[in-house]
Design a protein around this nucleic acid. Structure first.
Lengths: 223, 223
DNA sequence: TAGTTTCTGTTGGAAATACAACGAAAAGGA
DNA sequence: TCCTTTTCGTTGTATTTCCAACAGAAACTA
């Protein structure tokens, strides 16, 4: 039995009544799967005809290159989606991998069932497609934001760019980040030890303070 | 009079008959505007309720930061679109600027007219929205590809990553790139002179040869 | 054609990063 | 609880990048 409360929070099902959700799920041939911590959900190269929606847990979209360098593209939490771009553009195989960083439950939705209005005339397809449009647009902006961070030239600037964006998102100078140090380094595409060093400096210079994943940006942060 | 042949090539109007295009344009309250070389088409911060479609010329999506560092996010050629993510996600102002790098003609389309099926019951809206979905998905993959390049740690790796992708796209070891050196550096987020140096080295080591924007990847390129 | 501007490659020194290695602290498992 | 594994900060060195400056080639203009 799938938790409908998570689905209701998902932008994909925005504006769709709870009582209609259940019937829609079967119409979309939705399938739930569970994964253990550190289990690979999808592999680079896999063809994908479905998109994923995280019901519980947490996943990372990542890419490993030839030399073993890993890059984390994004962190996906419950009610958010993944692989929808690949599913929508069909032809192409997955250029990323998807990893469960915690015990995770995922709902898979057949993209064809969403795009092709079904014979049973499910009236919500129109709404669903527009929601999907929003999801893709938002994800696009998210990627643009990420590019913003990693195009900064120094590790310090990357950190400042990322942390101020996170603070803004949290609406507070105190916030948690969803990464540990190694993961943050992989997200910002820098060396972990160099990044740790830079964080120390920033703390010494009283730009910010941190403890584990909790950060606090100080007043003289605005450079 | 708008060139319909360019529109026909656009993924947005894919599958829509030429004879219907003209009426659709007025339905979408399409407006054509012309820009001189180096003229700004849209400014960072502008609210956007419309998306753009390049009819002729060439534009760059770019971002200037506080210190004057410019980053080129993408290069957009005739029949391609821009600003569609911002238009679709509505609320947000533009986080990038759009610059005409050549004399350019742009068609603007009102996003509301696309999303809200019009009263005159234009039957193509459904098709249009699905096409838009594909455009957004493709752009997403494009951004992911760009992230691939710039997350590489060294200038050399960034170049190799970008050039091999361009070669793949062209389907040949010989190809042109749409950037001059300065622009390529801004696209890859590296210093121009350092990049020039690295290109020289790569040529000396016989990985590739180049003349202006024409590149030729040699056999021992595959590292 | 001559003069001007833009583009490209080169250089040298300053600055920043990557890499490898290590110990301490924290987290997790038996 | 004890032991193992993971995480985190620190350091020193080699490598790489950035920056500023310059000169020749190419493109543009009058």
């Amino acid at each position: 039995m799938i938790s409908l409360s998570i689905l209701k929070k998902s932008p994909l099902f925005s504006g769709i009544d709870t009582k209609d959700l259940q019937s829609m799920l079967s119409c979309l041939s939705a399938v739930e799967k569970k994964y253990a911590k550190n289990e690979l959900i999808l592999r680079q190269g896999d063809p994908v005809g479905y998109m994923g929606l995280v019901l519980s847990g947490r996943i990372h979209i990542l890419k490993d290159d030839f030399w073993g360098n890993r890059t984390i593209l994004s962190d996906v939490t419950p009610s958010q989606m993944f692989a929808e771009s690949f599913a929508c553009s069909q032809n192409q195989g997955l250029s990323v991998s998807v990893l469960a960083v915690e015990p995770t439950s995922v709902l898979f939705l057949d993209i064809k069932r969403i795009l092709n209005t079904c014979s049973s005339a499910c009236v919500f397809h129109t709404r669903l497609i527009r929601n999907l449009l929003s999801v893709l647009a938002e994800k696009n902006l998210m990627l643009t934001g990420k590019i913003d961070h990693i195009t900064k030239r120094t590790t310090r600037e990357k950190l400042l760019s990322y942390l101020s964006a996170e603070s803004l998102k949290a609406g507070s100078p105190k916030f948690q980040i969803p990464f540990n140090r190694q993961q943050l380094a992989e997200y910002l595409a820098v060396d972990r030890s160099a990044m740790s060093q830079e964080l120390s400096k920033l703390q010494k210079e009283d730009y910010l303070s941190y403890h584990k994943n909790n950060f606090h940006l100080k007043d003289n942060f605005t450079h």
